[in-house]
Design a protein around this nucleic acid. Sequence first.
DNA 1: CGCCGCATGTAATTAGTTACATGATTGT
DNA 2: ACAATCATGTAACTAATTACATGCGGCG
Lengths: 184, 184
Amino acid sequence: MALSHAIMTALLEDEMSGYELAKAFDVTLGLFWHASHQQIYKELHKLTDKGWLEKEPVVQQGKPDKIVHRLTGAGREALAEWVWGESRMQEAKDDLWVKLYNLSADNISRLSAEIVQRREEMMGRLYLYEKIRRRHYDDPESLPIRRKGIYLALIAGIRQGENFLQWCDEALEFLARAENTATA
Amino acid sequence: MALSHAIMTALLEDEMSGYELAKAFDVTLGLFWHASHQQIYKELHKLTDKGWLEKEPVVQQGKPDKIVHRLTGAGREALAEWVWGESRMQEAKDDLWVKLYNLSADNISRLSAEIVQRREEMMGRLYLYEKIRRRHYDDPESLPIRRKGIYLALIAGIRQGENFLQWCDEALEFLARAENTATA
DNA sequence: CGCCGCATGTAATTAGTTACATGATTGT
DNA sequence: ACAATCATGTAACTAATTACATGCGGCG
């Protein structure tokens, strides 16, 4: 599984609570991964049981107490080993593609609307990630090695997103033409 | 779930056995979806229990007998309803992105090798899907409506793949530079 | 007082992978 | 004889979603 390794990766530089992790996921890994807080808490317990993380309760004022988690030496090793190992390409199992296989005169306007919606959502994400890129990864050649890796992942996500936006525009035009010829 | 709907989609035009479905998935939906035969058989039973599919044993000569599955009226309705409904964008939960967040002097050549491998795999897939596009979707404007939807999904996958290839090339160059400056 | 953000969880269900299991026919 | 392709499954496990549950503190 990769969620556990994604969590450990997020903890490489900072110790965090489950709540903080859930939010950090959306910000730093959001283009690639989303994890619910339930899943994260469960995973944190497992990783702590394995000895890859250690936890420490932290008393806060003005807020409920929290439990921060920190990578152990064994955790660092296990993570490095996982990075070294094999991994497989994942398909984009998105319902939208399956829906398009069902395109018909009945649902063409509905599917167009859905593409418009997707387009807007992607625009929002891209806006956020472009901002991060400009602010923190503007001069990629001079970044420290780990940040260079993050940079590569970031631009992969941004490119993918831009590519999707372009597809949306073309698809919407194409569908509009298809709708017209159908009713003409 | 979408696997069940992907299966029903595949059965829109032809009745098929589980074995045939497993192969058809790799060919027609392969850029977006892969499903093991185990998962498909399980799903076929569920869908048949729901009354969305009906099955019929078919005796074959020279081959073991098979059980073909066919969409029922209720199945067609349920599928159309699903297409109409909401769906959410899916992230590309690929290990590669998480691994890149762990880039270090120790693993940079390993990760470069992995990108080379991914590049080759994607090249192979693209070759196949480009061939399908040229052969069956060369004149998209004149396709019947359903095929137009498939065309849109197909070019989305192809674009995504080409985009990935380009990223691979740039990433590999970038990593090579990073490796040199590290050892210089 | 009620809503929002912070903070952590359990339980049930659904989805997907991996390993195991069987047996027929065709080609070498 | 042996491997490859065709064909269908079960069992165990891992991963992910959805629903449910609790409680504090600050703000209007």
